[in-house]
């Protein structure tokens, strides 16, 4: 009997505390990142965390590249009464489940960096998206090659007027990787240059794999390779190490190689400074993080009008967004001329 009373008391206390929580509805933001070991996302995460400091309570979870796990995390946020969610989807095509959950609780949600299917976004009026136009990163990467190629006749090693290139692809199932692969080449062709693909392969965004694949290509093609395009900087840096091992020099040296990447990570900026990297494209992690936080903060605290200091909700890329649900954070080209302003 005593035990039963004890259990009842515990339950009563628990219920009471839950009740208090529900009544107060203290504003707090639940954040889930698709995986913590993604370099870019860790910058976004840092920005969200530092922005939230002293302003609002947040909880940041690692979804470990596992959508079911992320769904559980969303459930947990919702039962704990979080007032807005900021979700970096693991699988952007599987967003309908998440939207169903938040819609049932009428909790506003900001998706960021990994863009959900548009049809699902339209189903819920309190669903927003913050991100960059992935195609733009590819286009800018291609333009970096074009600019360098046109200004540097020596880049055309065999003087045939055609760019012989190899492509290091990230995760082939990832849309960013697909866009960068496709649009970088489209941009080069759009500038009136001819290209010839010698090889392409996946290096899973990884520096070591990028190095190993490039080393194999250098053994096979040697000086035939004129340009190395990498879907991200880590792989570009791996390619640089492979080129160094094969006796290639910095740009302007005797045996240079044109290498471009995307992300503008600190090691990539260092490689730019040393003349091993022609250019990289900054996916502005800080501005993405800030825009995500601004939006989630406004939603969590019940602001009537939602807008971000970073980019107006309407649009940033110049295209009208009638629903006012998308924030497009622009990419930035980083070259020898302007890299210093991105060093932190």
């Amino acid at each position: 009997m005593k035990r039963l009373i004890g259990v009842l008391v515990i339950f009563a206390v628990l219920f009471a505390s839950f009740g208090c929580q529900a009544a107060a509805k203290k504003p707090k933001i639940g954040v889930a990142i698709y995986k913590f070991d993604d370099t870019f996302m860790s910058y976004v995460r840092n920005k969200i965390e530092t922005s939230a400091k002293d302003k609002i309570e947040i909880s940041v979870q690692d979804s470990q590249y596992d959508q079911p796990k992320q769904n559980d995390q969303v459930d947990q946020f919702l039962t704990q009464g979080y007032t807005s969610l900021a979700i970096n989807l693991v699988d952007p095509s599987a967003v309908s489940v998440v939207i169903g959950k938040v819609q049932a609780k009428k909790t506003p949600i900001v998706f960021f960096n990994r863009e959900p299917v548009a049809v699902d976004m339209a189903k819920y009026d309190k669903a927003y998206y913050v991100g960059a136009k992935a195609q733009e990163s590819g286009t800018m990467e291609g333009e970096l090659v074009v600019d360098y190629w046109k200004n540097t006749p020596a880049a055309d090693k065999n003087k045939d007027g055609i760019i012989q290139y190899v492509m290091l692809i990230g995760d082939p199932s990832n849309t960013d990787a697909q866009y960068r692969t496709e649009y970088s080449i489209k941009a080069i062709e759009a500038a009136g240059l001819k290209v010839e693909k010698l090889a392409e392969d996946t290096a899973m965004w990884d520096r070591v794999k990028g190095q190993e694949k490039t080393a194999a290509w250098l053994a096979k093609f040697g000086d035939k390779i004129e340009v190395i395009l990498a879907n991200n900087d880590d792989m570009a840096l791996g390619a640089i190490e492979a080129c160094k091992a094969a006796g290639l020099t910095a740009l302007g040296g005797k045996k240079p190689m044109v290498i471009v990447g995307v992300d503008a990570t600190p090691p990539a900026l260092d490689a730019l400074e040393q003349g091993f990297l022609v250019g990289t494209v900054l996916n502005d992690a800080e501005r993405q993080g800030l825009a995500t936080f601004d939006l989630a903060f406004a939603l969590a605290t019940g602001a009537k009008e939602v807008k971000s200091d970073v980019a107006p909700l309407a649009n940033a890329a110049g295209k009208a967004d009638p629903a006012g649900k998308y924030i497009w954070v622009p990419y930035v080209k980083v070259t020898k001329e302007n890299y210093k302003s991105f060093k932190k």
């Binding site: 913590f36 070991d37 370099t39 860790s42 910058y43 995460r45 840092n46 520096r207 900087d233 880590d234 840096l237 190490e241 160094k244 091992a245 990570t265 600190p266 090691p267 990539a268 260092d270 490689a271 932190k344």
Partner: peptide
Amino acid sequence: SLYVDRPPRGAQPIGGLREDFTNLGT
């Protein structure tokens, strides 16, 4: 991950290694 994700810069790839060290591998 804890080790890498530290202030002041937070998580990021670790680059800019000294040549006498990389020479060990290259």
